[in-house]
Structures are given as C-alpha cells and as structure tokens.
Simulated scan of single mutants.
Amino acid sequence: MEEQYTISDPRVLKAVAHPLRVRLLGLLRGDGPATASELGRKVGESSGSTSYHLRELFKYGFIEEDADQRDGRERRWRARHRYTSWDAVELSASAEGREALRIIHLRQAEMVGRVMEEYGQAGWSEEWADVSGMSDHLLTLPPAALREFKDRAEELLRDLVARHAGDPGARKVHVWLGAVPRTSQEEES
C-alpha cells in the first residue's frame, strides 16, 4: 500500500467526500480488504449501493481490486493509500475548490462526531479511560507555529507507532488532536 494520495483536482476531492465513500474508504484502510457485501453489512447499506460507491472510489484511484484474495464471484477491494491529503492553498484558489474543501471538512467533522458518539467511558479499562478523549485549545499562534506543530505531531506519531509495533496492549486508535480507541462495535463489524 502506498503511503499517501495527494489530491489537486476539486472534482476528485468532492468524489471522495461523499458520506458513504468516506466510510467505505476508512473501513478498507482500517480493517483491510472486503467485498461490497461485507462492507454493506458494516455500514447498513445494500451491496448494490456499496458496489456503486466502490466503483466510484476505484474510478478515482482510491482503491483497487485485491486479486490475491478474490472471493469467488464477488470482488474484494483494498485501499491503495494509507492517507489522503490535498493542497488547501491550491484548491482554495477556485470556487469549486473551496466548495470541495468545505464538503470534505464537514465529512471529517461528521466522522469525528460518529466515533465520539460510539465511544463511551463505560467498558474501557481505567488505563484507556485515562488517555482517551478530546482536547480543545484556544491558542494564539502564527501559521509558521501551527505548521511546526502539525509537522512535529506527525513525526511524533510515526515514532510512537514504530516504537510500539507488536506491543500486545496496543490497539487501533482514532487520532485527531485527541485520541480514542476504536469501539468494540467497529472491531466486531
């Protein structure tokens, strides 16, 4: 799997920003290859609907068929990239790009909201409850300081992943400015 897919075309960003496509791509990245039927069961959609949206993700280069794990007559799909990024400066130069950015940012916020709704302190160990949650900071910083923060946070995350690879206590977590473990419902789906 490639590390990153960088989008410069607002139409491509709008295509991936569809609510169901965001979820399907996230599941393929987080849980690995799956068929349209398997994904449909996870998201509560018909396999016809998920098939259509998977074909759209394929058309724009986000996913590919997993030929190594073909499931009889049904295609298995896998994500081509670990992350999607875009050049906000380039995209915000046009009205279409600004609209695409608005839509993708709304989808990101919806996803954070969905994960936080599914997360609850009950049922998690004290250790996980202690480190989970969200932070809200109101700071005064110039763009260069925010860039430094983003770059250093990314570097720190890469370092932590590498140092804790194989740790039996590790589990997938959602990380934004805060982090929460994936819900048991997501793990079982």
Rank of each mutant, 00 (worst) to 15 (best):
A109R: 14
V175C: 09
L141C: 08
A162G: 01
S135H: 11
A153D: 05
A122T: 13
D159N: 04
S85T: 14
K42S: 10
R147S: 07
M111W: 15
A79F: 05
D159R: 09
Q69G: 07
S37V: 10
R152G: 00
Y60P: 00
A93W: 08
A122R: 15
H174S: 12
E56L: 11
E118R: 14
A34I: 06
S94Y: 05
Q108Y: 14
A109I: 09
A100K: 00
L39W: 02
S85N: 08
G166F: 02
S46Q: 11
Q108K: 14
A109P: 04
E56V: 13
A153K: 08
D71W: 04
A162Y: 04
E90C: 04
A129W: 08
E117R: 14
S92K: 07
W128Q: 05
S49Y: 11
A179F: 12
P33E: 13
L146C: 08
A122G: 13
H137N: 14
R76L: 03
I63W: 01
V43C: 06
S49H: 12
E56W: 05
E38D: 12
V161S: 01
A153T: 05
G120F: 09
A34G: 06
V89S: 10
I104R: 06
R78D: 03
L54D: 01
E74P: 01
I103A: 02
G113Y: 08
L177D: 15
G72L: 01
E117G: 06
A153I: 01
L101I: 15
W124V: 05
G169I: 07
D66F: 00
Y52L: 09
E99H: 09
T35W: 03
A170R: 14
S49E: 13
A145R: 13
G44V: 05
A36I: 01
A153P: 01
K150F: 04
E96Y: 06
V180I: 15
